[in-house]
Design a protein around this nucleic acid. Structure first.
Lengths: 187, 187, 187, 187
DNA sequence: GATGAATGAGAATTCATTCAT
DNA sequence: TATGAATGAATTCTCATTCAT
């Protein structure tokens, strides 16, 4: 009854939705939860976002943007003089050591996209943009795609197993993939 | 009213649960849906699995087992004389070309594990077992872990972007990660 | 929390639904209203009738049955020695003078059936059964259908206009339809 | 933002309301639906029609007008030299063969009138006007009322049962009502 | 043991209407 | 005068879980 004019409400609802997904996962997203988190009446969330999917998409697009900004910062910080594996290791370590909530958010986005048609394009765009950005920096798209795959696979692996991340093991492992004889196989 | 002695009912419920998750995702799992899919009375599902979580865990454990069996078959089929990258490419191509429903099930497992304490150990075990199995075969655990990461990252990438998988690009990309100069960067 | 075992509940819900439709019309039927009228928890109505349509159909089928019983009583009471128009007039007068709630229910059933696929068959069956029943009694189906049409049209007309029903006017009017010269036209 | 001066807006809203009722029934009428159908802002519908009932009444009055115009055309086309039953049969056949949407609109009007005080007068006026108009033409009001009743009853019967309309059966049936011995009864 | 009716909470939506601008 | 954001109530429906039989 109090707040009648509230021009930023739409954005506040999106922010609240991101908070809710971060805390309870995509499965935990509900109009009610968002309304409570944004401190707006329930009807307000459905007014601004006709369906829950609309809200989910808006929220994940924003998550994607923030994630891309972080990723772009890393890309910009790559030192051509340093071996790429080391830079990748730094990236993975950063991600795993950073805000766990945000990281979970992104991987939940990926995995949910497998089922959820509405979020698929966001995840696809995210993956493609990462590869493009990195590809421009290092001059090779195939390598960029491989880096993104390795990084994603690693983050997922460590998020789920809880195993500590060891940069040296990564370098040795990657070397082993290309040349098992030297990487350790058979020794 | 018909079936009184039905020793396989528990298993049939699990199978039905996997079917339901495969069709509607974990969010679509419910006692009712499973009961309908298994053609058993509603009370039967709650009788054999006190909570829905118990049923989910049982189902995902079985998904994991089946996935591991497939993975083990691939590991056994690895030819030491063939470059590992080629074998990895074969694996990724197999997964992407195989039963999409089963593949999605495993990523559904990962997704659930991100949030769900009860499911986390299953996903962790899955990832660890894959690395162990492969590590024993190729003699190096770090390489095995890297392979698992690369494979997961690639499958996810292609499932989400819909991009066709090109084994040559993978080999070039991986080479580029280790030695950007030769893999394409700067050339 | 109190009432746990209640074997007649399903029927009580149907009865309550009929009461609700009688009072507020088909548009006023809601799970909530029925639950309140039947004094059962809301979930109970959705348990016994998965969708509101299911409940509506069950209720209207019962309305139809009761209506047909009344109609059959009239058919049985027809005196072959009395002109049919007089018997029809008696029927219409009975209906208009009887329980208005029940009559409205039936005509609401008819009119709703035009739009509502689920109730169409009930209305169609009702109309057909009336004609069959009467046709058997008077030995002619075409006449029976005409009687049903006249009666329905008249009841609707008087229900909506509030005009008093005059049996003599009906007889004169029907005569006029067949032979306008004698029925009054031109005089 | 575009239209500032729009003198026909009120009428356009009414037309849109009729369209909405035609498509989804009275139950589907809502400010939102009308605003979308009329391509006007939501506030515009509530501005021109303070309550939804006002809008419904305006729409149904127009439906009535259009219906009466059609009916008047039929009345004017009646040939005194042709038996009235044949003309009635022609009318019923016209209605059943004509625009189903418009016919349903009128019965929707009847339906609403059964419960809705605000709508009752419109339906009553519609029925009375039909009788008056026809009565003036044929010179007998009682006959006119009977015709209207027969026509309404027949249209309803055929719309609901889907049975094909047979003019001969109608004539025989009506004859049977007045003189069962000749119409078929007892033969 | 096994079943399914019962329950109450919570889900997404839709909406008429009000009112600040 | 016209608009659309805001609101809160009401809608249907789904469901995990309990528990009497």
């Amino acid at each position: 009854m109090a707040r009648r004019y509230d021009p930023d409400r739409r954005q506040r609802i999106i922010d609240a939705a991101i908070r809710v997904v971060g805390e309870r996962g995509i499965a935990g997203l509900s109009h009610r939860a968002v309304a409570a988190a944004a401190d707006v009446p329930l009807g307000s969330t459905t007014y601004h976002f006709r369906t829950l999917d609309d809200l989910l998409v808006a929220a994940l697009e924003q998550v994607d943007e923030e994630w891309m900004a972080d990723f772009a910062r890393w890309v910009a910080s790559i030192d051509p003089a340093v071996p790429l594996t080391e830079e990748v290791a730094r990236y993975v370590a950063d991600v795993l050591g950073g805000d766990r909530a945000q990281t979970e958010l992104v991987y939940e986005l990926y995995l949910a996209a497998l089922r959820h048609t509405a979020v698929r394009p966001i995840a696809a765009a995210c993956l493609n943009e990462m590869a493009q950005l990195l590809g421009q920096r290092i001059g090779d798209l195939a390598t960029a795609r491989a880096v993104v795959a390795v990084a994603d696979g690693l983050v997922l692996q460590h998020l789920l197993t809880g195993q500590p991340f060891d940069p040296d093991a990564l370098r040795a492992g990657l070397a082993g993939v290309l040349d098992p004889g030297r990487g350790g196989r058979g020794s």
